[in-house]
Design a protein around this nucleic acid. Structure first.
Lengths: 238, 238
DNA sequence: AGTGGCACAGTGGTCTAACCACCAGTCCAC
DNA sequence: GTGGACTGGTGGTTAGACCACTGTGCCACT
């Protein structure tokens, strides 16, 4: 869709965003442990070389991610993200090497589970419009089949379209949570899904199964497709 | 575990949190449409009767939820949450009646899908420690079996313990995203899961299947349990 | 000894008022 | 027509002050 520029965009980030990055990394990597208190805002802002205003904007973001909890008159506590945080932190968790394998494996497992049933639901409920959207994506994939990254991006678009077809907005939200992970790790996922030709063939087969309302076949194809990468990557799956 | 007080806790909320509630509701209910620009900060803060500082803290939270996007020199845009937001907004989306049925149905479908496979994975991977945790929850359930809300809370705890047993932290994060929904809608879910005795019986059966490493049976029990409520609520499932 | 009231120090919450930085449109000089 | 300067509108950041809440310890009273 969009053309790719040769140049990297210049990164300009708000102070608060930079602070968030720094503090979040510290929390996720265990530099601050659950239950521990952050330094007082006045002190922390001084150490960071910013004003309390900027720091506080950052704290609101971290609070939104359930990584900390701020209490008036007491201070800010680090929460146990394994118990409090949602999928929004997955992206950052994968950057903190630290058991990265486990996290990737877990993500792929969830992807396979949900993706399989997604195919089933799409086959049961897709409208003509949904089918057209799927067709359009497959056609576009055929056009760029030689470019692994382009195919991998369309692979994500294909599943978003399937989520639309499933008429289940909750699954769409779940997919949204994973979009950036998918797009930021183009090479990794390009390897996982295999050669472009195979991807397109599978997508076409799934689309046809959906068109025939053959839920069982759609689910079978989806499952095979989604577990294939895991097997290729981790060896034998359990 | 914790004893229940007779009194409701006094609600004290930060200004920024109140602003977030108000703006988020406006976005999710369609009062501001995707692509639309929010009023300038100076103007919006004046309308709300707060300073820019408080407003900006609120905007950082909304940005973290991917409901808006703020650009230096331009303004803040409303994003299309169906395309950008993650599961964190599900809780609020359910409060905006507006197709509430669809959202609940979607959430229950996802719950059934993931829960079923969760049972399978737990059976394949649970440690002795995981099994003890499951036993403890079932025992506690037996103690409070007459109190539907208490049972419903333990139902959630049971699935968290199952997620621990699955050794899949990504699914744990997914569960975290739904915790508040579960706890805030005690009566609804208490009705969905059925009478306490049945809940406990199922949990015990699942625990035993996990102990025997009988993945197929665990999955079957889980599936039956999780789709039961949907059928009861929505009538025949597809 | 137990109770309630009070003062104090530490910390988050909010406000004010500037000024800096970026963006888009306009107009002008070359 | 191309590049540069100007300008108005908007977000980003700063500084410093003051308000509000929490926990602690002391004290007076019972």
């Amino acid at each position: 869709m969009e053309s790719e520029s040769v140049f990297e965009p210049i990164e300009k980030k708000r102070l608060s965003a930079q602070i968030v990055d720094q503090l979040r990394h510290r929390i996720l990597s265990g530099g601050w442990k659950p239950g521990e208190k952050l330094p007082p805002e006045r002190e922390l802002s001084r150490s960071l070389g910013v004003t309390r205003v900027s720091l506080r904007e950052a704290l609101r973001t971290l609070e939104g991610e359930s990584l900390i909890e701020t209490r008036h008159g007491e201070g800010s506590l680090v929460r146990d993200f394994t118990h409090s945080a949602g999928l929004s932190i997955l992206k950052y968790l994968m950057r903190v090497d630290f058991t990265q394998g486990d996290i990737l494996r877990g993500a792929l497992e969830l992807r396979a589970i949900v993706g399989t049933e997604l195919c089933r639901m799409a086959a049961e409920r897709a409208t003509e419009q949904n089918l057209s959207a799927l067709d359009a994506i497959v056609a576009e994939e055929e056009r760029v089949v030689g470019d692994p990254i382009a195919v991998q991006r369309l692979d994500f678009a294909f599943f978003v379209a399937m989520a639309d077809a499933s008429q289940n907005i909750v699954i769409k939200l779940l997919l949204n949570s994973t979009r950036e992970i998918y797009l930021e790790n183009g090479e990794l996922f390009a390897m996982l899904v295999g050669p472009g030709e195979a991807v397109v063939a599978t997508h076409r087969a799934i689309t046809e199964a959906v068109r025939r309302r053959d839920a069982a076949e759609a689910a079978r194809l989806g499952r095979e497709y989604l577990t294939g990468g895991m097997t290729r990557f981790f060896g034998e799956q359990e």
